[in-house]
Design a protein around this nucleic acid. Structure first.
Lengths: 109, 109
DNA sequence: CTGTATCCAAAGCGATACTG
DNA sequence: CAGTATCGCTTTGGATACAG
C-alpha cells in the first residue's frame, strides 16, 4: 500500500520511529554485529522486537543482513550507505536533544 | 513519572513524534497562527488532536500560547526559541528524507 | 471560536513458548 | 544461535457531541 506523506520528516519518523530503531542503528555504527550480540547491546529489547525491527530496517535499506551458512547459525547485520548517512543525521538530532535537556533540566544528572 | 532515556534521540522523538507535531511546528515557522487557522493548515487533523498536540508542545517549551481576552475568543500560537531551533533541525532531517526518497524511489513523483 | 469529554478502533510493545 | 507464533496489555489516533 502506498503511503502519502505530508512532509519528508514523516518519512524519517517512519524509518527511525518507535522505541528501538535509533538504538539499533547506533550500535551498528562501528561495524557488523551478530544477532545475539545486538540483544545484549540494546538493553531491554526482546528477541521478538529485535528481529522485527531488523527486518524493517533491512526492508527500508538502512541495514544489510549477511548469513553465514553454518551450524550453529551466524548472522551479522551492518549499516548500508543509507544507514550510515542517517547515522550522521541522528548525531545532529542527538546533539540538539542533549542541549535541550541540559538547558531545560540543568539540575538533572 | 520520571522517564529514562537511553539516548537523546528518544528525547527528540518524544518531542516531535506522533502524527502531527512536525506539521504543527512547520506551520508555525513563519509567525503566530490562530487555532482555527491551524486546523485548516494542518490538513486532516481533528480539533481534538490539534489541541492535544498544542498542549504538549507548549508543555515541552517548543511553542507559546497567547490568548487575547475577547469575544469571540482569539488565541495565537507561535514558536519559542526552542521551537525555532528545533525547526532548523527538522529542516536537516527533512532534506535527508527528501534525498532518501528521491534516491530510493526515483520514479515516484 | 476555542477547548473539553466519551467512546472506540488500531497500532505498538512485550512475555512466553516453540522450531530448525 | 537465529527466527517464528500467539496472546494480551497499553498507547495512540480519530469520530462525535458538547460547553464557555
Amino acid at each position: 500500500m502506498k503511503k502519502i506523506y505530508n512532509n519528508q520528516v514523516e518519512v524519517v519518523l517512519d524509518l527511525i520511529g518507535g522505541k528501538w530503531k535509533s538504538h539499533i542503528i547506533f550500535h551498528l555504527g562501528s561495524g557488523p554485529v551478530r544477532t545475539g550480540e545486538l540483544i545484549r547491546l540494546v538493553a531491554g529489547i526482546t528477541q521478538k522486537m529485535l528481529i522485527e525491527q531488523l527486518k524493517e530496517l533491512e526492508r527500508d535499506g538502512l541495514i544489510s543482513r549477511k548469513s553465514y551458512n553454518q551450524v550453529p547459525p551466524r548472522v551479522e547485520y551492518s549499516l548500508t550507505n543509507y544507514g550510515s548517512s542517517l547515522k550522521d543525521i541522528l548525531k545532529v538530532v542527538c546533539d540538539w536533544g542533549d542541549d535541550y535537556v541540559k538547558d531545560r533540566y540543568p539540575t538533572a544528572k
